[in-house]
């Protein structure tokens, strides 16, 4: 067994046991922060499936918001269990993503233009949620109708945070698994070729539109799933935190900070940003509102200038270079 695999198993065991470690009253807080890290890492990972191939979307908030709102509205108005409602939400989001992605691919909207079109899509979803305030609650948001009991499997509502801890851990692992599957598949080579040069990729027989639509559908589906999980855990949805330019940029930044070309990059980036904002919030309290985000924004700019492949990506690159140097020294 390689040391890397051993470390991964040890980490997994630690994560599985974490909720039962005595933490002297801090348990709820620690669990709450960890659940958020899992959910946002998963969403960041879903974004990076597209981002790593040059499809930089600034509108993933659209998929996140659609997923969260569809499941929530189906439960609130029709009492449809989120097990089914979540599936409907994911299917709906994939349909929506395809409607946007098909013309983008057909008319070759790339680079800056792709970023701006997706940004507009994200804003359209946010504004529609606000405009339809009669049943979405507008910018005040919407609270999930509470289930009758403290622990309801049908409604996926649990007062015990440990349930959501394990649920989000599983979903996070699912995201990593999908990433690895894609990374080892032929689709990755095809998508990399498309990201480099579409015309060249098409000329060697790669079906450009099919691959682009496929990766967009996958990314949108996972993002919507993240949205459903978010809604179930927080039992509250809000257009500004789940759709539009703000949340879309947050997702992108966390991933870029960690590194979008590596498996654990999105997780490292998300964990760091959430840990940083929690730390600053604890230090400064509510006295200096905005201080945490100010430092966060400054770090982002510095990172993009000095460490463009992200923290995790750069650290791994450094480690690899050292290893090859040692190998060549001994040889």
């Amino acid at each position: 067994m390689t040391p890397g695999r051993l470390a991964a198993l040890a980490l997994l065991a630690a994560l599985a046991a974490a909720p039962f470690v005595p933490m002297a009253g801090m348990r709820q807080y620690v669990l709450h922060v960890t659940i958020q890290i899992f959910i946002w890492s998963f969403i960041g990972g879903a974004w990076s499936l597209m981002g790593r191939f040059g499809l930089v979307s600034l509108g993933h908030g659209a998929f996140l918001g659609l997923g969260a709102y569809a499941a929530t509205l189906l439960w609130n108005f029709y009492g449809l269990t989120p097990w089914v409602g979540g599936l409907v939400a994911v299917a709906l989001t994939v349909g929506f993503a395809l409607v946007v992605a098909y013309p983008c691919s057909r008319f070759r909207i790339l680079g800056h233009y792709f970023a701006l079109v997706t940004l507009a899509v994200g804003e359209v979803v946010r504004l529609l949620i606000i405009a339809e305030r009669d049943w979405t609650g507008g910018s005040l948001g919407l609270t999930l109708r509470p289930a009758r009991t403290d622990a309801s499997l049908l409604a996926i509502q649990y007062a015990d945070k440990r349930v959501f801890y394990y649920a989000s851990l599983v979903v996070w692992l699912l995201g990593l698994w999908v990433w690895t599957l894609l990374d080892r598949s032929m689709a990755r080579a095809a998508m990399e070729a498309i990201g480099e040069d579409e015309t060249a990729a098409a000329s060697v027989g790669i079906h450009v539109t099919r691959f682009k639509l496929g990766i967009t559908a996958l990314s949108a589906a996972l993002t919507a799933l993240g949205g459903v999980l978010y809604a179930q855990y927080f039992t509250y949805v809000n257009p500004d935190t789940l759709a539009g330019i703000g949340v879309s940029l947050r997702i992108v930044f966390a991933v870029v900070l960690g590194g979008m070309y590596s498996l654990l990059g999105p997780t490292v980036g998300t964990a760091l940003t959430i840990a940083l904002s929690e730390y600053l919030r604890v230090i400064f309290g509510v006295k200096f509102i905005g201080m945490a985000e100010t430092i966060y924004g400054l770090l982002l700019v510095l990172f993009i200038i000095f460490l463009p492949s992200g923290i995790y990506g750069s650290a791994r690159g450094l480690l690899r270079r050292r290893r090859t140097l040692e190998a060549s020294a001994t040889a």
Partner: peptide, 26 residues
């Protein structure tokens, strides 16, 4: 960052947006 990938250029000014917005709030 004049020579970096267009994505990074876009994101650097996006980071500035975040910074200015929060600094003004602060």
């Amino acid at each position: 960052i004049l020579g970096s990938a267009p994505v990074n250029q876009l994101l650097a000014t996006g980071g500035l947006l975040f910074f200015l917005q929060s600094f003004a709030t602060f």
